[in-house]
């Protein structure tokens, strides 16, 4: 494979990682909540898309939008009813609760849909190859790169240029200070949580091509999503973006050249990085 193809392949899977993980980064940064169930929302999104396309004949893009809305709404219900009770709890309780949630989601999907791997049929215009002038490449991978880039720009603008974004940044930086300035961190969190879960749902659907889609999805990729967030830094949209791309490309290259155990290096790198900079590559050190 030539270097450009490798880079494009890695970037496209990095974009998927980004879309799924960005919400996790913001919510963990805001509340310090250890949410191991985040991948579950991505999986649910994938299933909403599969079901909507199969049973209601929805096409791919509207199904993505539907997944966003459904999962975001569902996550708000969970957040208000359950997550909110554990904000002040110990990490251990949060870990238990979210692992339990993963089990419930996995079992529910297995019961409702079945244990087999689902395939999301891409529309014709996303299949095949696109001529880039100097080379041709898979249209879908290119589309992922475009979508991911647009998304990070939109999120960056939202974070840096809107009052809402400024509030979230303030609250990630120093929750108590933000609260004393009259920012309702609880409500902020609910909105961020919904947005993040909705994006994860979209990511689950977009990434089914690369990551697959079956009931074990949340557990299988749990460590991956967490690594992306940890490397990128909590609550840092651009940090997560670059971390996701880095890991996506690295993973792609390693799997290509060291098909057996190439991912070992990713874990080793993540481990060393976390020991060296616990706040992540792009996070700022807290005082």
């Amino acid at each position: 494979m030539d270097p450009v193809s490798i880079l494009l392949g890695g970037l496209s899977s990095g974009m998927v990682l980004f879309i799924v993980s960005v919400g996790l980064s913001v919510t963990m940064g805001l509340m310090g909540f250890v949410n191991l169930a985040h991948g579950g929302f991505a999986m649910l999104g994938g299933y909403v898309i599969v079901l909507a396309m199969k049973h209601w004949g929805l096409s791919f893009v509207p199904a993505l939008a539907l997944a966003f809305v459904v999962v975001a709404a569902f996550s708000v219900v969970l957040e208000r009813l359950l997550y909110a009770r554990l904000y002040r709890a110990q990490e251990l309780d949060q870990v238990l609760f979210t692992i339990g949630l993963v089990f419930v989601m996995t079992a529910a999907v297995t019961l409702g849909v079945g244990p087999e791997t689902q395939v999301i049929r891409l529309p014709d215009w996303l299949r095949g190859q696109t001529d880039l002038g100097f080379m041709t490449y898979r249209t879908y991978s290119l589309a992922l790169i475009v979508v991911g880039t647009l998304l990070v720009i939109a999120l960056w603008l939202g974070f840096e240029r809107t009052r809402y974004g400024a509030r979230i940044r303030a609250a990630v930086d120093n929750r108590r200070m933000a609260q004393s300035l009259g920012i309702d961190v609880g409500r902020l969190f609910t909105v961020a949580f919904a947005l993040g879960s909705g994006l994860a749902a979209v990511g689950g659907g977009l990434g089914a091509e690369i990551l697959g889609l079956d009931p074990n999805y949340p557990l299988r990729y749990l460590v991956y999503f967490l690594i992306v967030v940890a490397v990128g830094g909590l609550g840092k949209v651009t940090g997560v973006f670059f971390a996701a791309l880095l890991i996506g490309v690295l993973d792609f290259v390693l799997k290509l050249y060291f098909p057996k155990g190439g991912t070992l290096f990713i874990y080793a790198l993540a481990l060393m990085l976390l020991l060296w900079r616990p706040q992540g590559l792009f996070g700022r050190k807290s005082a």
Partner: peptide, 26 residues
């Protein structure tokens, strides 16, 4: 590992285990 705590500790213990799993596989 025990110089870290909280979320980071959770992550590094998880990474160490996954590392070992991959190593045993290789």
């Amino acid at each position: 590992l025990l110089r870290t705590h909280g979320l980071t500790l959770l992550m590094v213990t998880l990474c160490t285990m996954t590392l070992l799993e991959q190593a045993a596989n290789m």
